[in-house]
């Protein structure tokens, strides 16, 4: 019933002599929310960047909706980068216009609704916002698209716990049976209740891929606790 939205097979990425991804294979299905979890420098961001075409693989394949990464895949993928990457001289309403012009699937009405519930004023210039508010605006833009695949790289790093709840709520509310969400994060205990599946990645390899329910019933502990055990320093 669920379509495969993203498929990686034998994916490698080298930066010079450094192997960032080593033979990664995985499938992302529609209607599911995935957590991409791993310690710093394990390859999470590299995998996400390969999926949206910001990087090209050294070897192996990555398909989005059955096609190689390109114009069509970018139409289907809504990407939240791990750093702020918007023209910061624009005002928020200009950014909304910008996204609206760029993406056919952008829903400006939704964006304004979210701005309002987060008490953000659309006339404000992006560069005058606090770090957390910048992240919120960026996330609003990304979640206001009706995409097939959402790639969220550290969506909650700089925001307060109440906003974190709002973001998680937004992800649940936007949930659609024909879209998939991939969240890369360190804040495992915050997200694990909304995840279907987790992918543990370490030193460029996927070391575990299972549903949250299975992990909990097999190990008798939370994903967060398992993570601390597997990746103990």
């Amino acid at each position: 019933m669920n379509d495969i939205i993203m498929e990686c097979s034998g994916l490698w990425k080298n930066y010079g002599g450094m192997q960032a991804l080593r033979n990664v294979s995985c499938r992302i299905q529609s209607g599911r929310i995935y957590g991409l979890l791993g310690p710093n420098g394990s390859g999470k961001t590299t995998l996400i960047k390969l999926a949206n075409g910001l990087l090209t693989p050294s070897a192996g394949k990555i398909l989005i909706n059955g096609e190689e990464v390109g114009i069509n895949s970018r139409k289907a993928v809504s990407y939240l980068p791990d750093c702020v990457a918007l023209p910061d001289w624009m005002r928020i309403y200009e950014l909304i216009k910008f996204y609206d012009d760029f993406y056919e699937d952008f829903n400006a009405k939704k964006a304004y609704q979210m701005l309002e519930s987060l008490n953000l004023f659309s006339g404000q210039r992006f560069k005058t916002l606090s770090k957390g508010n910048k992240e919120k605006v960026q996330l609003i833009l990304v979640m206001s698209r009706e995409a097939k695949l959402y790639l969220l790289d550290e969506p909650m790093g700089g925001v307060d716990p109440a906003t974190r709840d709002y973001i998680l709520n937004t992800i649940i509310t936007n949930y659609s049976p024909d879209a998939a969400v991939v969240i890369s994060t360190h804040l495992i205990s915050d997200v694990e209740n909304i995840l279907d599946e987790v992918l543990f990645i370490n030193r460029g390899e996927i070391v575990l891929s299972d549903t949250v329910d299975n992990i909990r019933s097999d190990n008798g502990k939370s994903v967060d606790a398992l993570f601390r055990e597997v990746f103990r320093c």
């Binding site: 209607g31 649940i172 509310t173 949930y175 209740n193």
Partner: peptide, 17 residues
């Protein structure tokens, strides 16, 4: 289901299950 999932802060698939 979606509403209840939101209220409980869980994944809609989990609520469905």
């Amino acid at each position: 289901v979606r509403e209840m999932a939101q209220e409980a802060g869980v994944n809609p698939n989990t609520m469905q299950r």
